[in-house]
């Protein structure tokens, strides 16, 4: 992989159940692509096409049945779970469809988790700035239950950028939001992405959102059916 490629996916296959036979369920087959540093990619396709599975494998949340993923220079297939966790902590940011904030932590504490995991202290000012950047400077000490869906997703976005990730993985980031909030959220994602030179991988049903990416991969039945620019 050249230095220009942040993500390289090679013949990625994921089968649930036994590897062969009647019980085998192939959700992803022979998917390959590379993604240049700082670029943005949208993965689209109908429900069950393997989008989320592909995202999970690219981010090192799961292991492939065949094939390999190289993320920020690290071959994920060769790493154990804890080593993959370190890669995620150092290079990856996440935004989930259902926000996935830790309910027992305040907005500020949620944002600080990735850096605290590294044992880095003294980043509170930066976390507050990020929250201010997403419009929640006044809500730092609120718990997730006290925030609306859009606000929770903005906290999740601030958290994703807190560890200055090289890659941002977004799984349906606007899927649970109304139109206006979704639009504002998209602005934030792409704005921060540009500001910080992050590589973006976005899984979505929303074609408008996908079109804002530099490249779109369409999946159907676990296989790539098109790889294009909008």
């Amino acid at each position: 992989m050249t230095d220009d490629n942040m993500l390289k996916v090679e013949r990625l296959t994921k089968i649930y159940g036994p590897a062969t036979g009647a019980g085998a369920l192939t959700v992803l087959r022979e998917v390959s692509f590379t993604l240049a540093t700082g670029s943005s990619l949208a993965v689209v396709g109908p429900s069950g096409s393997g989008k989320t599975t592909l995202l999970g494998l690219c981010a090192g949340l799961d292991t492939a049945t065949h094939g390999d993923v190289t993320l920020a220079g690290a071959r994920l297939g060769a790493l154990d779970e804890d080593a993959r966790a370190r890669v995620r902590n150092e290079h990856v940011g996440f935004v989930f469809q259902n926000f996935q904030l830790i309910p027992t932590l305040t907005a500020l504490e949620n944002v600080l988790v990735p850096v605290e995991l590294r044992g880095e202290g003294g980043r509170e000012v930066e976390a507050r700035e990020l929250l201010t950047r997403v419009g929640l400077g006044e809500r730092c000490d609120h718990y997730p239950v006290q925030l609306s869906g859009g606000e929770q997703q903005r906290v999740a976005l601030a958290r994703a950028f807190m560890n200055r990730p090289k890659v941002l993985f977004c799984d349906e980031p606007t899927g649970n939001l109304d139109h206006d909030t979704a639009t504002a959220m998209a602005e934030l994602i792409f704005g921060l992405n540009r500001e910080r030179g992050t590589t973006l991988v976005l899984v979505t049903h929303d074609l408008e959102l996908a079109k804002r990416c530099q490249r779109i991969i369409r999946l159907r039945g676990g296989a790539v059916v098109s790889d294009s620019t909008p």
Binding site: L61, E81, A85, V92, F94, L101, I102, P103, V113
Partner: peptide
Amino acid sequence: ITTVAVLRCLGASARQ
């Protein structure tokens, strides 16, 4: 469990 999964996504090891 979800909290644990989120921590794992954010880079916490199984041991942590």
